[in-house]
Design a protein around this nucleic acid. Structure first.
Lengths: 103, 103
DNA sequence: CATTAAGTTTACATATATGTATACAATACA
DNA sequence: TGTATTGTATACATATATGTAAACTTAATG
């Protein structure tokens, strides 16, 4: 029985990089992470969605949407959430050769 | 003549952390970085705004707005741009104690 | 099981991010 | 200097992110 690395499995199951399906998948994968990060940070602080909502002034339904990537998210929202959770978000960009990184 | 570290100078000039003014400043600082990162990556690739626009299917005016933080930005837009520039964006979140990091 | 708390889903309103087209400003460069 | 290139600003249309309220689904817990 042949075994695969995750990368191999992804190639096999989702299609090779560069194809539309795969790009779509990678895209959504990254989008999902935002929601996961929000949820992770919230749980780290032992808060319910309702409590977090109160911290930034929105209803719990809104937090649920953010965590489940029901809609796209703006930078402003991301920062608002992580600020409330006393966390620091960093974005960094890796180019093909050089690496550019900003706080 | 007294000298300051950047951190000291920020505290002095903008107000201490936790105050509204300072939070606002930090917030905008981070937002600005997105535009800067986009511009930096574009120039790294030696492209004009118009060329980048063509890559992702928008007019150059739109790229200008993104680079100058004229409006808030969605994750989707960020990824679209950096994908086109063959760059990888990572978001990572540092909590007070533990550090959570995701690709 | 019944009851509460926590999270999700839906329908809807409003603000705003994205997109275009055009005019304008700044820069390079002949 | 004039001309082309590049980037910015403005006015406007459309899609959608954010926000609320209420119903619904799951866990938890007595």
């Amino acid at each position: 029985m042949k075994r695969y690395t995750l990368a191999e499995a992804e190639d096999k199951l989702i299609g090779l990089k560069g194809t539309t399906e795969r790009d779509q998948y990678e895209f959504e994968l990254k989008l999902e992470l935002i929601g996961d990060m929000i949820q992770m940070a919230r749980k780290e602080r032992q808060l319910t969605q309702e409590q977090l909502g109160k911290l930034i002034g929105v209803k719990k339904a809104q937090i649920s949407r953010l965590e489940n990537n029901t809609s796209n998210v703006t930078i402003e929202t991301i920062l608002k959430v992580f600020n409330a959770l006393d966390a620091k978000v960093n974005f960094n960009v890796k180019m093909l050769n050089k690496q550019v990184s900003l706080a």
